[in-house]
Design a protein around this nucleic acid. Sequence first.
DNA 1: AAACCTTTCATACTAAAGTACCGGTTTGGC
DNA 2: GCCAAACCGGTACTTTAGTATGAAAGGTTT
Lengths: 159, 159
Amino acid sequence: MINFKNIFLGSKHIILYGLLMAILVFALKWLQWKFLIVDNALEIYVGLIAVFFTILGVWVATQLVKPKIQTLIVEKEVYITQSGEFTIDETELKKLSLSSREYEMLQLLAKGYSNSDIGENLFLSLSTVKTHISNLFTKMEVKSRTQAIAKAKRLKIIR
Amino acid sequence: MINFKNIFLGSKHIILYGLLMAILVFALKWLQWKFLIVDNALEIYVGLIAVFFTILGVWVATQLVKPKIQTLIVEKEVYITQSGEFTIDETELKKLSLSSREYEMLQLLAKGYSNSDIGENLFLSLSTVKTHISNLFTKMEVKSRTQAIAKAKRLKIIR
DNA sequence: AAACCTTTCATACTAAAGTACCGGTTTGGC
DNA sequence: GCCAAACCGGTACTTTAGTATGAAAGGTTT
């Protein structure tokens, strides 16, 4: 996991700090100019003191400050075998955009019905059954009823 | 999870920093003014500078310290769909007394293979495949490949 | 109203599946 | 060695499946 905070503090922070120091120096210089209260030696001295004690502060802190604790939550996947409960994959089913008759054909196909069986069951002519099944195959991109059954089961669109 | 620290450092941090610097500048100016009049107190001035920058250094360091990562493992339940615990009904399979080739045919039938597909796969002639499948149908007491597939799945003799 | 999809049915045809019967080889058990 | 079963392959035939194309009725959407 990327720690944005570290990146921020690791590089930009230091740059920012340096810049602020530079600005401070210039600000002091400007103030010095403006108020003509001049004591260059003192400014340099104070600046060195500042830098030194800043570094000292950092060093002291790194030696004494307790390390921060960041909690990283890791999800461990526990697999639970769910017995039997079959659910139709509605997403996959909608993708195919089958008509109701076509889906009906598919269900009966999977039951092992022949074309004439289906016709007799749904009171349709053999021609009609063939037409529906042919269209079904086109939509499912298969070439035979057995392929249709295999694919339908794989996609979980029939039980 | 929202990291308040990032928000703080992201925008308010800079403002705070600026404010601190402004205060510092004015403080220095004030001190400079004061101790130019009260000359002997240079040590106090430098001391204050030292203290201030030490604190600043500590503060910077605490911001820079790399957080120690504590890993917390949380269990997440994942439901895996049926296939995990499918077992072939050996009893039903033995009842049919299929030969190894016949059973092989059945498995490929269920995959949606055509007779010629099977032939090419197993390096058998179409005639041989037909013979095996025909014998398979007789043993299974079915009349078509789709019926064979349906029955085989019902009896749980194929996956 | 026109365009589109679904459903129904038809004919004609090709491709594949399935049956029946045949011959031959191999393999494992008695 | 013999027998039964499995295995491999073939021919011939019937049946079923699948494709192509068209047509008509009904519903929905634009």
